[in-house]
């Protein structure tokens, strides 16, 4: 028996919006500790990894490991039927369950919608991603990161990210010209969510596809801050932290000959 009741059901709606562009089908791996998902995009260039801890649900019940294979577009369509303030409950009966039950309760508890989503067998490749000490870690407003990606897409398909002592610089060069945005590290005691924090072991310069970064910024509504972790010649980690877990995106760099 698997049952997970999420008071902030709107969070699940936002989460699906933030992964559906990148991944079509994925397994939700449910265990005592919570719900996890790891999936690569079709081109094997980007990966999304999300975790929802069991403590974030009320109640949460999972007797043993469940792997629920879901078409994310279908799940997203059903979740659009839930109100933003609804309480969402997910249920599956046993490991051979061929469907996932979803119920949507409104805050007054006088309207309850019930849906069934057919599950599928998904044979998914998982990558082992070790804990990494990154050369540079940047915490910045998520809306600012989204704006930078959107603005530089006008100029080029790629962006170079340079991090030095107290500055992060985003540069794009394309056929029409070039553009760059520099952000200096700032600290705001009153509004820490608006500050740019740079932790640097050594300078980093890496190039990435803006198309994927634009997809990652679909996670912006999940958190006011985004964390960027970079190491020379390593994939970029883009993380949005939530009260009940996180969503992490990994993107392989572009590297010259």
């Amino acid at each position: 028996m698997f049952e997970a009741r999420l008071i902030q059901g709107g969070l699940l709606k936002k989460l699906l919006e933030s992964v559906k562009e990148l991944v079509t089908d994925a397994n939700f791996d449910c265990s005592e500790s919570g719900i996890a998902l790891q999936a690569m995009d079709n081109s094997h260039v980007a990966l999304v990894s999300l975790l929802l801890r069991s403590e974030g649900f009320d109640p949460y019940r999972c007797d043993r490991g469940f792997s629920l294979g879901v078409n994310l577009n279908s799940l997203n369509k059903i979740l659009k039927c839930a109100g933003n303030d609804d309480i969402i409950t997910l249920r599956a009966d046993d490991n051979s369950a061929d469907s996932l039950s979803l119920s949507f309760e409104n805050p007054n508890n006088d309207r309850i919608g019930e849906y069934e989503l057919k599950l599928m067998d998904i044979d998914q490749e998982h990558l082992s991603i070790p804990e990494t000490d990154y050369d540079a870690t940047i915490i910045m407003p998520s809306a600012e990161f989204q704006r930078i990606c959107r603005d530089l897409t006008v100029v080029s398909e790629s962006v170079t990210i340079d991090v030095s002592k107290d500055t992060i610089k985003f540069t794009a060069e394309g056929e029409l010209g070039s553009g760059n945005i520099k952000l200096k590290s700032t600290s705001s005691i009153d509004k820490p969510e608006e500050s740019v924090n740079i932790e640097l072991g050594q300078d980093v310069s890496l190039q990435f596809s803006l198309k994927y970064l634009m997809n990652f910024t679909k996670g912006t509504p999940l958190s006011e801050q985004v964390i960027l972790c970079l190491s020379e010649k390593m994939p970029l980690l883009v993380e949005y932290k939530m009260d009940i877990g996180y969503i992490r995106y990994y993107l392989a760099p572009k590297i010259g000959d």
Binding site: M40, S43, H44, V45, A46, L47, E125, H126, L127, S128, I129, P130, S158, Q207, S209, M234, P235, Y250, A252, P253, K254, I255, G256, D257
Partner: peptide
């Protein structure tokens, strides 16, 4: 020339 790397070039499959 700049080439797009794949994730499997950095991480191993489980």
């Amino acid at each position: 020339m700049v080439g797009q790397m794949l994730l499997a070039e950095f991480y191993s499959f489980l």
